[in-house]
Write a protein that binds this DNA or RNA. Structure first.
Lengths: 122, 122
DNA sequence: GTAGGAGTTGACGCCAATGTCAACTTCAAG
DNA sequence: CTTGAAGTTGACATTGGCGTCAACTCCTAC
């Protein structure tokens, strides 16, 4: 598929897809005319990239991480031990993020619930 | 306490504290000389602000939200119903964020575990 | 072949929280 | 008083993922 279809199917702008390629996160074949051509696995990869961005990883880290993950592209590469150490740091950071989010979530929920209770009472 | 101590105790830079004040998220008394003076509750508020930032809320939303939350400053204000609707949207977004984070967390964990298993095997 | 939608690269802009520097003032200790 | 750390305001810079525009090329249907 070409870039427009991938964008539609993954919910990511074409601008972002080109940016991902420039950052080495996503690869594509080219037609003789120079247009990008993607395989079926591209969509999954894009979704994965988005999730990792959402987890607060920057392009560079995602780029080193992606080849170590098992996907339809083939077996995973062996991660460098320094990368593993790095990933453990990231994992901890993500755990803290999840904790923070859950607290914020409860905070919001408290306000929402209080408001609806008050609305019902008054 | 003054700004430096609050910064140390909350783990937030003085720059950020002044920014929070400018955004209407944090208030302070002033000494005759014009220096900021914070009460004991300031630290909790700063932590809360940080959590809400981490949850992806922008300054403006935090500013409207904070007065609706119960804290040592006094009773909560009644939230506007449009704010409540807004907060429900945010809550859903946070729920999705948590889901994404958990997936990413598992992804990283998989790579880490695979690496340590391989390291142990080889 | 031709029209027009889709693709290409490159450049510039944005946002929003913070870092950072400058020039100046206040505060606390000796 | 004096001195130096800490505080003040204001302005500018940064970061990084992505929007957006421009100028040009490719692909497909007629």
């Amino acid at each position: 598929m070409r870039i427009g279809e991938l964008a539609r199917r993954s919910g990511v702008s074409t601008r972002s897809l080109r940016y991902y390629e420039q950052q080495g996160l996503l690869s594509s074949e080219r037609t003789p005319g120079g247009q990008r051509e993607y395989g079926e696995t591209a969509r999954d990869r894009v979704v994965r990239i988005q999730e990792l961005y959402a987890a607060g990883l920057c392009s560079a880290k995602i780029a080193t991480l992606l080849p170590c993950m098992r996907d339809a592209d083939g077996g995973p590469a062996e991660p460098d031990s320094s990368l593993v150490a790095d990933l453990m740091v990231e994992r901890d950071r993500i755990d803290r993020m999840i904790g923070d989010l859950q607290r914020s979530r409860e905070l919001l929920d408290g306000v929402i619930k209080a408001a609806s209770a008050e609305g019902a009472a008054v």
